[in-house]
Design a protein around this nucleic acid. Structure first.
Length: 296
DNA sequence: GGCCAGGGGATTA
DNA sequence: TAATCCCATGGC
């Protein structure tokens, strides 16, 4: 482990870190100085900077990543998938998606750890993103293993000053959470989600992590929406189209659909097919940033 | 299938 | 100060 651990990946195309980290799929990436982003993946804290080059591609610098781990990061950022092709296919013949893709060009679907994804989206239910992030940070700080920091990955530009309370520790292991009672989590302020988290941790300790998406619905606190998020972000099922209030809003407004989850999911399966997950991310980001868009 | 409590906090009226 | 909303689920 060196103070200068860094991986550089050349020839990266169709990647916009800010959009990727702000499209609702992940909660542990924060803006850093100079357009970089600092995040925690597993126990590893890294800083990511994308440097565009002439010709469309660019160079991805991952500070704090161990040399030799390039394959892991290529997979995490889904770098071997052709997102330019996905953006073209979704835009073709669909003026709504054309706009959504234009607003969200460069979004990638991260391949996140399954347990982290389960914990994150259990907490996310009926909740807003800043508070989800706060809950996760408090949970990790109190019960998680300390972050593995091998290089300078300070959060030097968050709200203008560094913040020593975020990205300090990893998501707690299932065994750790399974041993808790809801009152032990009171300071994390999860509300009614605390009992879901503990119940799910106990189920995972008994039966292991779910291997199929259909097994997710047996976990306490996991319904259709949360299961779709876990399948899309944690199990690589990129055809999943999670329907939440933002998606309902944009779909009913732009496609004239009735504001009902079932009909929206049916429409998405018909229209987007195996690209449903990508379409969902462009639409979610577009709707969330409606009115404050620079790319459109 | 519809209704509503569950927690908490930010935003809006 | 009160009402409303937020990447829902579970129980009735």
């Amino acid at each position: 482990m060196s103070a200068m651990d860094k991986i550089t990946i050349e020839g990266v195309r169709d990647f916009d870190p800010a959009r990727t980290f702000c499209c609702g799929q992940c909660f542990r990436w924060y803006p850093s100085a100079g357009g970089a982003w600092t995040g925690l993946v597993g126990t590893r804290r890294v800083r990511v900077l994308f440097l565009p080059e002439k010709g469309g591609g660019g160079r991805l610098e991952i500070t704090g990543a161990e040399p030799g781990q390039e394959a892991f990061w290529r997979r995490y950022f889904d770098l071997d998938r052709d997102y330019g092709e996905i953006e073209r296919r979704l835009s073709d013949g669909d003026p709504v998606m054309e706009q959504a893709v234009r607003a969200g060009r460069g979004i990638r679907i991260l391949r996140q750890d399954l347990w982290e994804t389960i914990v994150s989206f259990l907490i996310s239910q009926n909740n807003n993103i800043p508070r989800i992030q706060g809950c996760i940070e408090r949970l990790c700080l109190e019960f998680g293993d300390p972050s593995d920091i091998s290089a300078n990955t300070d959060l030097s530009d968050r709200e203008g000053q560094s913040d020593g309370s975020i990205l300090q520790a990893a998501i707690p292991a299932p065994e750790v959470l399974a041993a808790l009672e809801p009152e032990d989590l009171s300071e994390v302020r999860l509300g009614y989600r605390a009992k879901y988290l503990i119940g799910t941790a106990r189920a995972v300790c008994r039966r292991g992590l779910p291997e199929s998406g259909d097994d997710l619905l047996a976990l306490p606190g996991v319904g259709p929406k949360v299961a779709d998020c876990i399948r899309l972000f944690g199990m690589g099922e990129v055809d999943r189209f999670p329907v939440d209030v933002w998606i309902r809003r944009v779909m009913s407004r732009m496609y004239g659909l009735p504001d009902r989850t079932d009909s929206i999911r049916d429409f998405a399966r018909e229209r987007f097919g195996d690209l449903g997950g990508f379409a969902q991310q462009y639409l979610f980001y577009w709707q969330r940033n409606a009115g404050k868009n620079t790319a459109d």
